[in-house]
Simulated scan of single mutants.
Amino acid sequence: MTDSEFSAADVRIERWFRSLTRAGQVIVKDGRLALLTSYGREIDSAPLSAVTARRRWFLGADSAVAYVNGVRYRLTMGQRNRRPGGAVPVGRFLAALRGGEAEATVPYSRRELRTPTP
């Protein structure tokens, strides 16, 4: 796989509060995103230009929200093994959507956001 391609299995895919699958697949390949069920049936797919995704502060570190053709999906990766490194596949997924760029998340505290006073 090149840097801009991504594949993950055992992904919980939800549309709003309805769970579509608990062991689905997310595939980014050839400029397209495909969401598949555990049986390989396509839930939704779109070119990357019609997809936006990001992490939300109120979700777990292993979750992301993706808008595919205007439909909101919640993707939770690493459902079955629930490892502490569940945030790693989400970061790789977001980087693949951006075309292989490194993810620009920097931990900071509230104190660093303030501008210094002279």
Rank of each mutant, 00 (worst) to 15 (best):
T115M: 08
A96I: 06
R80D: 06
A95N: 00
P118V: 12
G86Q: 01
E14L: 08
S38D: 10
F6K: 01
I43T: 12
S4I: 07
L36V: 08
A95V: 00
E103C: 00
L113S: 10
P47N: 09
F93T: 01
A53Y: 15
G100I: 02
T52C: 00
A8H: 09
R80L: 09
F6R: 00
F17P: 05
E5D: 05
A23M: 05
R41V: 13
L20Q: 10
F93M: 06
L33R: 10
E5A: 06
R56F: 09
L113N: 14
A66P: 02
R98Y: 07
E42G: 10
P118C: 09
R114F: 15
L113Y: 11
Y73F: 15
R18N: 10
R54E: 07
P118L: 09
L33S: 12
S19G: 10
P107N: 06
R32C: 12
D30T: 07
T115W: 15
V90E: 01
Q79N: 09
S109C: 12
V90A: 05
Y39S: 15
W57D: 10
L35Q: 13
S49E: 08
E5W: 05
Y73N: 06
G70R: 06
G85M: 02
T117I: 08
G70Q: 04
T2K: 10
V88T: 02
R82E: 11
G70F: 09
A66W: 14
A8K: 03
V106M: 11
A87M: 01
Y67N: 07
V90I: 13
L97F: 04
A9T: 08
R56N: 08
G24M: 09
V28R: 01
E14I: 06
S7F: 04
I27K: 08
V106Q: 14
L59K: 02
R74H: 06
D3R: 00
R111K: 15
